[in-house]
Design a protein around this nucleic acid. Sequence first.
DNA 1: CGTAGCCTTGAAGGTGATCAATGTTTGTGG
DNA 2: CCACAAACATTGATCACCTTCAAGGCTACG
Lengths: 235, 235
Amino acid sequence: MGKTRDLTGIIGEAAALPLFSGCTRDDISSLIEGGEIHVNRHREVIFKFGDPAHYFGIVLTGAYKLSRLSGDGHEAVIHFASIGDVLAALIMAKENPRYPVTVHAMGPSRAIVIPRSVYLSEWLKKPELIAKMQMLLTTRMSRLQNQRLMQRAPLHSKIAALLLQLVNRDDGGSRMHIQLPLTRKEIADSLGVTVESVIRVMSEWAKIGWISTTDRQISILQPESIVRLTMESQD
Amino acid sequence: MGKTRDLTGIIGEAAALPLFSGCTRDDISSLIEGGEIHVNRHREVIFKFGDPAHYFGIVLTGAYKLSRLSGDGHEAVIHFASIGDVLAALIMAKENPRYPVTVHAMGPSRAIVIPRSVYLSEWLKKPELIAKMQMLLTTRMSRLQNQRLMQRAPLHSKIAALLLQLVNRDDGGSRMHIQLPLTRKEIADSLGVTVESVIRVMSEWAKIGWISTTDRQISILQPESIVRLTMESQD
DNA sequence: CGTAGCCTTGAAGGTGATCAATGTTTGTGG
DNA sequence: CCACAAACATTGATCACCTTCAAGGCTACG
């Protein structure tokens, strides 16, 4: 894992994030004071569950997986964080926080980690910034709630909904692509089911040409078909 | 549903909430400006999913159930809000928000609803208040995440975990009691399973004296046994 | 006193879990 | 660059758990 404290080149990059829209370069400079750039390779850990949490993070490039290990050794994925997303956002409010999740890089990724103290001293002073942070939390919460809605749906609906949630439109919508390197195992852990079950469903989809996978890059070739699956048991 | 705009008697009540600890009566007075007290009977709706959201709420007495209806007519319970908890906390950050859940009273309950505009103009100015709001959101998010961990656990573990989450210690801990009037259906909708399954598990527990129910009031008579169930497949 | 909401029980069936074995791709170090 | 290990994908057989469907009872409340 590479680290650097030289933040001069970063300010421009940070300014491009929606989170910092409306902030001057000086604003940003003070907001990321004492920060550090982490350069991670695939599967590297940036925060570890249970460790004392002195830093939070913002994804600059790539993506990170937020997960926890359940008692019987299964990994439960909480969230996939991509560019602009906040890592360990939950540690802000607590007194002596510990990381509530383990954060792995998904493919080569970069993040800036910022001392919690800077959040308390600088970030909290700016209402618009707080609102944006709340917005990020809100989005994540809505996602968790939506998945709650799908709990009773059949497996193929859950997988369909997850894929659509992670998708970025390529062109007019006739073909979609998921930016993260996503394994079947990660999909399974995200839905709380087994790899085998996920594979059985997705292999079927690949066979009939609805999706295709090459090196963990998933493309949705027939979005309408996938969308229809989520409809069946959903509003 | 009874409503009143006379807030004079409420300030003292509000001051007792952890949310407003450290606020003067004048502070509180401006924070609940334009608010309204809602007095609800069992099962009454205070916010409805999809309606334009101009107000958020704070539970004063009783409890409220936050839920959504899934496409196939099943109710999915998102959260049980009890005294001091915030209702529709998620609407703050958005532009033209609509209520993301339907909120039902569970038993006779009272809440104060406050215009969103007051939040934007008054609440956001106070960093400690923001921190407390984020804390409430954080707690809720952690809860959703913990339930995520239980996804693969057997049903009895899930029910055990849910009951323990909702419990308030009565005495030294040898006997616990859940303050809300909680039906088996609501437990089922909260876990994403069927009523029948919940009943089969809980009837068994009642038979061997681990719990007892009288008029939707659930008592846990043997907490250790219940706790053990959650351990089996959890950290 | 009847309806609505809640609880209960049973039988049958299906979905996804488990277990086991094998193939494939990716990454690493000599 | 090859060899080997590790991570990932796949397939099949069996089975447990939970769902579904159906029917009936209990209690509160207008």
